[in-house]
Design a protein around this nucleic acid. Structure first.
Length: 710
DNA sequence: GACCTGCTGCGGTCTG
């Protein structure tokens, strides 16, 4: 039977009405599989290849919507994505007379109430909204979700390897627990490519036996051009901006400059150039600190401007699948931190099938150029960095203990432990550990014991009853920026924020005229010029494989035809610098430059291992400085350094004690974990050891390391 | 030099 014939008649009519000539490959395959089995699937194919329909066409054909309850639950990491998908799914469902309901913090209360009265059809929701329902209205969870047949998870890669992902995994397990039957899961992604990631995906959804990957590997031609313009951290070189302007003035373009301040700089300066030469005025900035309504306007403009060109300078806010229509070109300024990110960004251009993707990569310094090249080469090899999975997510466990206790009016220790026993998110945490953590939560009054049963304690109430409870991540305080009642965006408090200072925000220039510390508001008026705003970033870690590839680029002789002349010159210059080292095995060899009483150790490894190396050097009294996350400047004799690092007595270092002391003395270290601070100290130490540092990777790295001296 | 993500319930006011 053809895939088309397998679908139900209303869905076939939808396809005919849409005048689709054929089904896309991913749709063909998904229909065949989903219609005939109940296994979990992950559909992998590039952006705009019809993944959403690949999941929904068969699911809607198969599911019996006559039964009571929500039958299909669609989960998305972003509200904006839910709103986009709602329109598409609703169109489809019009053929079936099946209700579709949006359920997130900004969705209509009336629609939600209507669904409670008559639970049916499809629901689109965020993980945090599921959490909120579990905590506040556990009876609604049963009422709505005990008849679920399918769960669709969009942009599933964005959950892998993060606390938010573990949280979602726990929620899925809790949903399955209250469900009458076993529901099937379909994950969607454009950014998964190797076997390691397949395993993690399968683990995430269940087991490798009951999860299958369906993948469309059709390559998409990409025209990549690398350009090099030396610049400073303060400002982008004018030549780069001029070149960028000329290249993009007659197209629809997304520009990714990596940092919010720089996003503003690019938007403002391109607009200035355009103004001067009478070009179009559609230059925008899009990032998390631009006011939400302004951002929505920018998205709307992009989606609906078929004739007008535009340039949106943005951060990762436009990396995921929000529908912004067709983009001709993608520009990346300086290297991405990950290959995954590069894949998502490249995928945003040339969405139409017949069009190639156009990618421009600008580098403003040598190291960034080399990292950019490394990412690009790995991308072409279809390599992607491994996901670092949190095997023992003690902090998420704290959150879920509070959530479960709150959702019950009293629960015994045995019942509570049973809740976690079958929960795959915590399968590597022993029951005795969970018990110890519960006991600690009681000691700090987060839980209270009434007779045989646990309830939320006095301190716990303070957290559980705030809206901040539902998420696994925390956000810093921002000041709202406005001008005469018009919302513009928000900025963190920094020395730069004071009266009469000029700043960029939302692609315009402003003068600060008032800062109100009480109401956390900044009043501004339009100005002629300004400076890019400072944000206090928390950084992103770069993987070992990218750094190793950088070294490979430096020791190879390959000429890159996609690189401009100045770029190739810089590569040649750096290669010449490194030619004094006899590097034959980039997987083990690392350059060690020995000069008058100073060493330069080029570690070429992940941010986490660099952080760990730096920590170890501190413990061993090796005076050093880590520069650009690439090299260590060391005040130490060369023979001593090599033997010290090769012969570390890990036992004597007493890591557990050092980490516990660190957690106690510097609580700020745990800032990366919103719920970790409520754990007993030695568990906090475990989090530091496995999440902030990477001792396992570091030991392995040092064991293989061969320092190659000049 | 450094990204992003989400949010209840209740009481008040406004609108049809």
């Amino acid at each position: 039977m053809t895939a088309y014939d397998m679908l139900s008649e209303p869905i076939r009519k939808y396809i005919r009405d849409k005048k689709w000539e054929s089904l896309r490959p991913i749709q063909e395959a998904a229909i065949q599989k989903i219609m005939t089995t109940d296994t979990h699937y992950v559909l992998i194919s590039r952006t705009a290849s019809g993944k959403t329909e690949a999941a929904f066409l068969p699911i809607l054909s198969k599911v019996n919507f006559k039964e009571q309850g929500v039958k299909v639950l669609y989960i998305s990491p972003l509200i904006a994505l839910i709103n986009d998908q709602f329109t598409r799914v609703e169109q489809l469902c019009a053929y079936l007379d099946v209700p579709v309901t949006k359920w997130h913090g900004e969705a209509s209360k009336g629609q939600k109430d209507r669904l409670i009265k008559d639970p049916a059809g499809i629901m689109l929701i965020t993980p945090e909204s599921i959490e909120a329902m579990f905590v506040n209205k556990p009876y609604n969870v049963r009422h709505l979700f005990s008849n679920l047949e399918y769960v669709v998870i969009d942009e599933i890669h964005s959950f892998l390897g993060s606390d938010r992902g573990v949280h979602l995994q726990s929620l899925l397990n809790r949903l399955q627990k209250i469900n009458h039957k076993k529901f099937s899961i379909v994950g969607l992604s454009a950014t998964v490519s190797d076997a390691n990631q397949y395993m993690e995906l399968k683990d995430f959804l269940g087991t490798s036996e009951n999860t299958r990957i369906i993948r469309d590997n059709t390559p998409k031609p990409i025209n990549a051009v690398f350009k090099y313009f030396p610049g400073t951290v303060e400002e982008l070189p004018l030549d780069l901006l001029k070149d960028l302007y000329v290249r993009t003035r007659e197209s629809k373009v997304l520009i990714f400059p990596n940092a919010r301040g720089r996003v503003e700089e690019v938007a403002v300066k391109l607009k200035q150039i355009s103004d001067k030469v009478g070009g179009h005025k559609n230059y925008f900035a899009h990032h998390s600190s631009v006011d939400k309504e302004v951002r929505e306007y920018v998205e709307f403009f992009a989606k609906n401007s078929t004739l007008q060109n535009f340039a949106i300078s943005c951060t990762s806010t436009l990396e995921l699948g929000i529908d912004i229509g067709n983009v001709d070109e993608v520009v990346q300024i300086d290297a991405t931190h990950s290959i995954a990110s590069l894949i998502q960004r490249v995928g945003r251009s040339g969405r139409r099938e017949d069009k190639a993707s156009n990618l421009f990569l600008y580098a403003t310094n040598g190291w960034s150029l080399i990292q950019s090249l490394a990412c690009w080469l790995l991308y072409k090899e279809q390599y992607i960095e491994p996901i670092s999975v949190n095997k023992k997510p003690y902090d998420v466990l704290v959150h879920q203990i509070l959530s479960i206790v709150k959702s019950r009016s009293g629960i015994t220790l045995r019942q509570l432990l049973e809740e976690f026993a079958g929960n795959a998110a915590f399968k590597d945490i022993a029951a005795t550990e969970t018990e110890e953590i519960i006991e600690h939560l009681k000691e700090i009054d987060f839980l209270e014991k009434l007779g045989n049963e646990y309830i939320i304690g006095i301190e716990g109430e303070k957290l559980v009853n705030t809206k901040d409870f539902y998420s696994l991540f925390s956000t810093p305080t921002f000041f709202k920026v406005g001008s005469q009642g018009v919302k513009i965006g928000e900025l963190p408090l920094s020395p730069q924020i004071r009266e009469n200072e000029n700043i960029y925000l939302s692609a315009r220039t402003w003068k600060i005229i008032d800062v109100d510390y009480q109401t956390k508001k900044i009043e501004v008026i339009p100005a002629k010029d300004g400076k890019k705003p400072t944000f206090l970033g928390d950084g992103t870690d770069t993987a070992h494989q990218i750094r190793q590839k950088m070294l490979e680029v430096l020791v190879s002789k390959e000429e890159f035809d996609f690189l401009d002349t100045t770029g190739q010159e810089i590569v040649n210059m750096l290669r010449k610098e490194f030619s004094i080292f006899d590097i034959n095995h980039p997987e083990t060899d690392r350059p060690l430059l020995v000069s008058n009483e100073k060493l330069t150790f080029y570690s070429f490894t992940s941010s986490k291992i660099n952080r760990t190396l730096s920590f170890i050097m501190n413990v061993l009294g090796v005076d050093h400085q880590l520069d650009k996350d690439i090299l260590f400047e060391i005040e130490y004799s060369q023979s001593d350094f090599v033997s010290t690092m090769k012969n570390i007595d890990w036992e004597a270092m007493n890591l557990d004690k050092v980490m516990t002391d660190m957690a106690e003395d510097i609580p700020k270290m745990l800032d990366f974990s919103k719920w970790g601070i409520y754990l007993p100290l030695h568990y906090q130490a475990e989090l530091l050891k496995s999440r902030y540092f990477d001792f396992e990777g570091c030991r392995d790295y040092l064991q293989r390391l061969r320092c190659i001296e000049n």
